[in-house]
Design a protein around this nucleic acid. Structure first.
Lengths: 438, 438
DNA sequence: ACAGTTTCCCGTAAATGC
DNA sequence: TGCATTTACGGGAAACTG
């Protein structure tokens, strides 16, 4: 009988963890005053149970955690609901809580600035718990379960930080509920973290990170090493401290890129046309022996909101070669021009000269149009021609070659790659661009 | 004594009408769940009055208007507040209500779809009223006053429609409170409306509309006439019906332009560099005898969100001339490139040729840089050169000349100007633009 | 099905609090 | 004062509702 009791108790679980959007890629981060859903379920089928309405009540922080400085919340919305069979695909009982909202309960005493473990809000963990009563024959059982720890934010700008906490927690914590996890967060092995990072990409897009890409990330974190698998990385280095010479963390940088991919060129990413994570040093190594016009796409290392650039090689008549890159494209550009069109039409303009098209082959040697052609925008504007009184225009991005170039002698190879400012001499600066329209 | 009573009663007025933002250019349009302010005032100074706290209570639709289909609202926030001297610059008593909010009070019965006067929500007028009690010697006076009629919206997308109602009402209604105004709204004389439209610009920018600009608007509404002053325009034509071949009204079109000016080039507008409201026919007349490279700026007539284009004249060696325009620039372009920079760098690119700079003189004959030079962005990027490893880029807009041009024979003059599609032959179509970057 | 209307929510800016 | 956090709300889009 005790066995049965325990069995039933352990059968009351949270099937769908608390989540802001049904298909959200970032569960367990909840924003105040925004709706979220959560779905507890009873895994055992006991037909007789259905006679009694099993009302489930949702609560947050029922057993209130470390009172000090911890924010308090209440759940608004229909937080008490009966279990039913219809919401469950597999039979059995469950409750699909929807349109719940969290509201901070401002307490006069003990504001955030306590002496204790002053966690930032995105490190504060909270639990959504559920209670119900099961009547089975002559048995009355109080059942209780709870979600994994959730992070509560108040603005979308905190979403990625909150998600970092959830990811770190679930990567490293075997406890189901360790509310003080971030008081002293454990370090992670690169072998663990790299798998997690790759999963971030494979769960958000149709492509994970390959070994070369992960190696680039590892080198960025640990510096050049023989083998990164056993390197340790701290929580702070992962998500709290800024990258050298930047004002954003490693995690924010990476997520900015992932966002950029999802919003503007997931198709091209899915096709594997973007190497993306490659050091400037390695990029140079890859390109220098390729034919002129060979290029690759690389993510910017200096933009918080994600940036992508392309780099190509030009072999000069005198046997020297040049590696050139454009200033990274950001969402500002990409909202106006799809990446495929940028690559398609990219030109170098020299003042008073015919523009050049430097991009010919996607590394290693795929003709540009073969790689990107399927995403080129239809030029059926032809049809509209006769109906249009205006000179058609498109936004483009240009730069111009100045009359004098930096002497080739200054071009050095293998300059420190993670010090962008120092590798400036690797590239000729081509002056300003001009605005032009027809 | 009755005289005194009436005097005092009429001295209780609304000094600042209900308004969402303190400096809003669109008072009397309130959005549900958004904060607004309103400030009633007692114009007479009665020192003895100060002994008694005068609590003012704010209400909406106290004497509820035509019940049918009319929405009901409640005021949230501190809607009861004592008058004081401090909020008043001129002495005397007033209350500065702030952080008030409107919330719809959903009534089960009689939804919007009644048989009666089914006004759209932006034609529904509501009143915010204020009550207080004045104790003066042995006199107890109940005072009451109310705002001008307000329009209540639920989304910013309804703001301009709501503002249209407020403007039409205050232009034509001499009653202070005519809640049924839009059941049968009166028509307006162009002499009234033109003044109102000009005031829209002068109150939002530092420049009103001049006679030529207003004449263009009148022709757009009434067709070519000798004199527009006595033309009548209906409420529907002003703000409800779509312009021919467009899916937005005259008012929405005009406000879209005003928004564009305010957001992206108010300085240039204030300087009077933008003729803006000019028909294509008149534009042609103005430009055709000017020297090659003379151009003017004109607002697009086919964009709801505002668009601006420029048109220039080119005299060919054979004595013919061409009038050319670019496709209108919209907020999409202007968020990336300031208008002054567009004009500055504008180029026509012919495939395999050196780009041309067709814009030389702002109509009638001001050298381009003299007119716009003060707004050119500083080219101190020079300084950053050495620190930048990338080829600098800027977004530009381009089109390209196709190899074959439309035969000049097809160029006709004076084609109907308000039928854009027909005037297509006035312009050579110059083919597609290309995307380019360095 | 649909149009008018409201709700929802991201992302920026401003306000608030410590 | 500066930084962390919350609030405000414009604008695009989804959801609602007769």
């Amino acid at each position: 009988k005790t066995l049965l009791t325990n069995l039933i108790k352990s059968a009351f679980v949270v099937e769908n963890q608390p989540c802001m959007a049904p298909q959200s890629k970032m569960p367990l981060v909840l924003k105040t005053s925004s709706q979220f859903s959560v779905k507890p379920r009873l895994l055992v089928k006991l037909p007789e149970v259905a006679n009694h309405l099993m009302k489930v009540k949702a609560c947050i922080d029922k057993s209130s955690p470390n009172g000090k400085g911890y924010r308090k919340f209440n759940i608004l919305g229909t937080n008490e609901k009966a279990m039913n069979m219809t919401d469950s695909k597999f039979g059995g009982l469950c409750v699909d809580f929807r349109h719940l909202q969290l509201k901070e309960q401002k307490s006069v005493i003990g504001g955030k600035g306590s002496n204790e473990t002053s966690l930032v809000v995105t490190e504060e963990l909270h639990l959504i718990s559920f209670e119900t009563e099961l009547v089975y024959q002559d048995l009355i059982l109080k059942l209780e379960t709870s979600s994994l720890p959730v992070v509560v934010i108040s603005n979308a700008s905190q979403l990625l930080s909150g998600w970092a906490s959830v990811v770190w927690y679930n990567m490293l914590c075997s406890d189901v509920q360790n509310m003080t996890f971030f008081s002293n967060p454990p370090t992670a092995l690169w072998s663990q973290l790299s798998e997690t990072l790759s999963w971030q990409f494979s769960s958000n897009t149709k492509r994970h990170l390959d070994t070369d890409q992960l190696d680039m990330l590892a080198e960025k974190l640990f510096g050049p090493q023989e083998n990164y698998a056993d390197c340790y990385i701290t929580w702070a280095k992962f998500s709290k401290e800024n990258l050298p010479r930047q004002n954003f963390s490693f995690w924010l940088w990476l997520q900015g890129i992932l966002d950029l991919i999802k919003k503007y060129f997931e198709n091209i990413w899915n096709d594997g046309l973007i190497i993306g994570f490659v050091s400037k040093k390695r990029e140079r190594k890859l390109l220098k022996h390729m034919q002129s016009g060979t290029f690759l796409l690389r993510f910017s290392e200096s933009s918080k909101d994600g940036g992508i650039t392309f780099t190509w090689v030009e072999h000069l008549p005198n046997g020297e070669y040049k590696i050139r890159s454009v200033e990274p494209y950001t969402k500002g550009h990409l909202t106006n021009i799809p990446l495929s069109e940028i690559v398609r039409f990219y030109k170098v303009m020299a003042e008073e000269n015919v523009p050049e098209h430097p991009l010919l082959y996607l590394y290693p040697n795929i003709p540009k149009d073969e790689a990107f052609g399927k995403y080129y925008l239809d030029s059926d504007a032809d049809v509209q021609l006769k109906h249009n009184k205006y000179l058609r225009t498109r936004l483009i991005v240009v730069s111009e070659r100045p009359s004098t170039e930096i002497p080739p002698a200054m071009i050095e190879e293998g300059l420190v790659d993670d010090l962008p400012m120092l590798s400036a001499t690797c590239f000729d600066y081509l002056g300003f661009s001009q605005l032009s329209t027809t």
